[in-house]
Design a protein around this nucleic acid. Structure first.
Length: 513
RNA sequence: GCACCCGUAGCUCAGCUGGUAGAGCAGAUGACUCUUAAUCAUCGGGUCGAAGGUUCAAGUCCUUCCGGGUGCACCA
């Protein structure tokens, strides 16, 4: 009568058996449920428990020394990635976190269990005991004596040859991506190693890792729009931090001399290939240092991490160009870089002339742009993208970074650096401002600037009085630095998109209808 | 936020100037005791992202919406 029964009837008429039923993903699920029941009634639990003394596949491969007569018994566990049935023998590929190994099963060795084994699907997780041998075609293989079901998969894996390429699904269902795409797994594992090595290096240098609030009453330390939230128990609005800076400086006041924090910042901004609003930032402060202290530190840090991760100072990008991290890194002043593009007399000519030159070089300028913004356009559009090998850009215009400490010899410049690698800013470093009166003045000016621009409220027009209070107790002069860990991971893994180095990048939730 | 591109079976993709959806893998059944993208035979699987519109007829053309990608902007 209804559609389904008609359809099933037709199937029956066509081939005279009841075996074939309509096949959708849901039907496959039902089929698997049935398999689970059948296994259970045969005394096999498809969702196994603890499975001890498992060898990593990489170690199993290492154990075979080329002597075919030697008997090597091993136990492995992992996911079935391929399954090739040949009558009374079966080959399957098992994958664990260290690699892949082919297993071989035949009816003579397994007996009744062979039929149970033959019901395994690609995607199931199994354990297997057996001994190693080399097949006719020369592949190291485990001949299975016994196996154990550890987990039955109810969904089919993406296709074995092309894998999973749909970018959206790779990010939304990262677990599938990780099962199927070895390179995704490698990149994300490398990222974890980057984080580990960064910590190790800093600890070895005597820096103390600290954790400061991620939910803050005022979101300071950077110019960015914060995420706002509400703290029920305290009955007040709070912000997700945009930077840990103001708390880390409080620690300098408190007497911690070398500290770092490696954790998430949140900025309420758009997403792009290079930006994720929730990103991992390393901030480091060192009392009695300045931005040059930080330059030496970051050069040592990144080269050491690169060496541990890649074993090389060269990184090949997807387009074939090579980034060379070999120290010492280039140091260039902002002005010299701008002059190299805009002409040696760039800063001597008048504003009109600078505009004319910039436009001649193909820049489209906002007619309202201030003079220093015109210059900065030249820097950002024409110079920054060309800084592929590591370059410390120093002595930036004070207009650009109003909160930093001025250079001793010229108050028009600030004593900072921006580390550029691969045309991207990887780390800014500062000689930190420790004059509380000057700091208050700049905060006030910044507030005015923000209310004037009217883009958004900066923490509702409030100044972090507690931070100023801390400064008034006296903060040692210090060098400070921030390193974008996601971007560093991109650099060291050659990833083109920041999302490739983030396990679960943000996605717009799918509406349920 | 703006511009451009994409969305077809569980996955990877075809589908021409509009004519009513197809392949491989995965799945089912059978054969096969050294395969490895196993092979061979047979079979099933679709709200063509969603909703409207044009048309005798829409996967295909138009509009809106949803989701994604890239670029720009915001932003270090």
């Amino acid at each position: 009568m209804n559609f389904n029964s008609l359809k099933e009837k037709q199937v029956m008429d066509d081939n005279g058996t009841q075996a074939n039923v309509p096949e959708t993903q849901d039907d496959i699920f039902q089929k698997c449920l049935k398999k689970v029941e059948e296994w259970r009634s045969a005394g096999i639990e498809p969702y196994g428990s603890r499975y001890d003394n498992v060898d990593y596949i990489a170690d199993v491969r290492g154990a075979y020394k080329g002597d075919a007569s030697e008997v090597i018994k091993k136990r492995i566990a992992g996911r079935v990635m391929a399954f090739r049935v040949m009558g009374k023998s079966i080959f399957a590929d098992i994958k664990d976190s260290t690699g892949r190994l082919q297993i071989y099963v035949n009816k003579n060795t397994l007996g009744d269990n062979f039929d149970h084994f033959s019901r395994i699907d690609i995607g199931d997780i199994v354990g297997a005991d057996g001994e190693l041998f080399i097949t006719k075609t020369g592949e190291l293989t485990l001949k299975v004596h016994d196996f154990k079901m550890l987990s039955k998969a109810m969904k089919t894996l993406p296709e074995k040859w092309h894998g999973l390429t749909d970018v959206e699904m790779r990010y939304r269902q990262r677990y599938v991506d990780l099962i199927v795409n070895d390179d995704a797994r490698d990149v994300l594992r490398k990222r974890a190693l980057v984080v580990r090595e960064v910590r190790k290096h800093l600890e070895e240098q005597g820096y103390l890792e600290v954790e400061t609030p991620m939910i803050q009453p005022l979101a300071g330390g950077a110019a960015a729009r914060p995420f706002k939230t509400f703290y029920e128990a305290l009955n007040c609005s709070m912000y997700m931090r945009i930077a840990p800076e103001l708390y880390l400086k409080r620690l300098l006041v408190g007497g911690f001399e070398k500290v770092f924090e490696l954790n998430r910042n949140f900025r309420n901004e758009g997403l792009s290939r290079r930006h994720n609003p929730e990103f991992t930032m390393l901030e480091i402060y060192q009392a009695y240092g300045d931005c040059r202290t930080m330059m030496a530190l970051v050069e040592g840090l990144i080269t050491s991490v690169a060496n541990k991760i890649n074993g090389s100072m060269q990184i090949k990008k997807s387009d074939g160009t090579i980034i060379d991290l070999t120290p010492p890194w280039t140091i260039a002043t902002y002005s010299d870089l701008v002059k190299s593009k805009g002409g040696p007399d760039w800063f001597d000519v008048d504003t009109q002339e600078r505009r004319k030159r910039a436009e001649k070089m193909g820049l489209r300028l906002d007619p309202k742009a201030a003079d220093f913004e015109v210059t900065n356009e030249v820097y950002e559009k024409l110079i920054e993208p060309t800084l592929i090998n590591p370059t410390f850009v120093t002595r930036l215009p004070a207009d650009l970074i109003p909160l930093a400490k001025r250079c001793d010899d010229n108050p028009n410049y600030v004593d900072v650096f921006e580390l550029e690698i691969n045309g991207q800013e990887i780390a800014p470093g500062y000689s930190e401002l420790n004059d509380p009166v000057e700091q208050r003045k700049r905060f006030m000016k910044q507030l005015e600037g923000n209310s004037a621009s009217g883009d958004y409220e900066l923490c509702e027009g409030k100044v972090d009085e507690d931070f100023l209070n801390a400064l008034e107790y006296g903060m040692p002069p210090a060098g400070g630095m921030g390193v974008g860990i996601d971007r560093l991971a991109m650099l060291l893994t050659g990833a083109d998109s920041i999302r490739d180095v983030i396990l679960f990048p943000h996605m717009r939730p799918k509406s349920n209808k």
